[in-house]
Amino acid sequence: MSQFEYIFKYIIIGDMGVGKSCLLQQFTEKRFPEDQPHTIGIEFGTRVCEVNGKVIKLQIWDTAGQERFRAVTRSYYRGAAGAIMVYDITTRSSFNHLATWLTDARNHTNPSTVMMLIGNKLDMAKQREVSFEEADAFAKDNGLIYLEASAKTGQNVEEAFLRTARKIYENIQSGALDLNAAESGVVSNRTRSNRIKAGQTPTNASSCSC
């Protein structure tokens, strides 16, 4: 699947230690790093996949959870088609901080950005501090798509990223997402080819160009 029709830009946000980088690596590389260091600033991954019969490249920016990097990571919210917000089901504080992360995301993304909430570390469900029902209610109250997943086993990881992509594609088809808007977080391959032919080089990350 080398020829893709769209590029979708994602960001992953949430507290330090909830498993954001591990989710990214499980999705893009099908592996779980046993000793993953905390992200410093921003990390990046891509994967080409099929969504509703269309070949789509997901361009995923993994942001640091520490407060001292917040000013840097906020600049990557701009132009995100999808925002994946992660908490750790075994750590109550990471769930309690979701309201702050959600406010941050909504203040710096566009109204059509698709928001997915992932409760990570499902493989450690016996140690959970946050029930599925509580998180599901939070998601419904805030218009979020919600799944529990495990970066370690891979359970629901692919589904979380692809469900977000399917919703973005539905928004394109329905007209809810305007591809001509600079902040859409989506670039069609046709638009990208036209830019290259016109001598316009791909811009920064926020334009969702590869």
Rank of each mutant, 00 (worst) to 15 (best):
F132L: 12
T46L: 08
H38A: 15
T113Y: 06
S188P: 00
I40V: 15
L58V: 09
K9G: 06
L23E: 06
I13P: 04
D178N: 15
R106T: 03
A165W: 01
F95P: 09
K152T: 04
S184P: 08
D88S: 12
S2K: 14
N194A: 13
I7G: 01
E34V: 10
E158I: 07
V114E: 13
T103Q: 15
S131H: 06
Q59S: 13
Q25N: 13
A105V: 15
E34D: 12
M85V: 09
E129Y: 00
L98E: 09
R128Q: 14
L162Y: 07
Q59W: 04
G41I: 04
G53S: 02
I13C: 12
F8L: 10
G175I: 09
N189F: 07
A99H: 13
E43Q: 13
K121W: 03
N156D: 13
D178T: 02
R68Q: 13
P33F: 02
G14Q: 06
R92A: 13
G119P: 08
G41N: 07
N156I: 03
K9E: 08
A165F: 01
P37I: 03
A71V: 10
V187G: 02
R31H: 08
I7N: 11
N52Q: 14
S174E: 08
T203H: 12
G17W: 08
R74H: 05
R78A: 11
F8W: 03
R195S: 12
C22L: 03
Q25P: 00
I84A: 09
S75R: 12
S75K: 10
F161G: 06
F161Q: 05
F44S: 06
D62L: 01
G154F: 07
M115F: 15
D123W: 05
D62E: 02
G79P: 04
G119V: 02
K152C: 13
G41A: 03
N110S: 15
I196M: 14
I42Q: 02
A198N: 13
M16H: 04
M115D: 03
A198P: 00
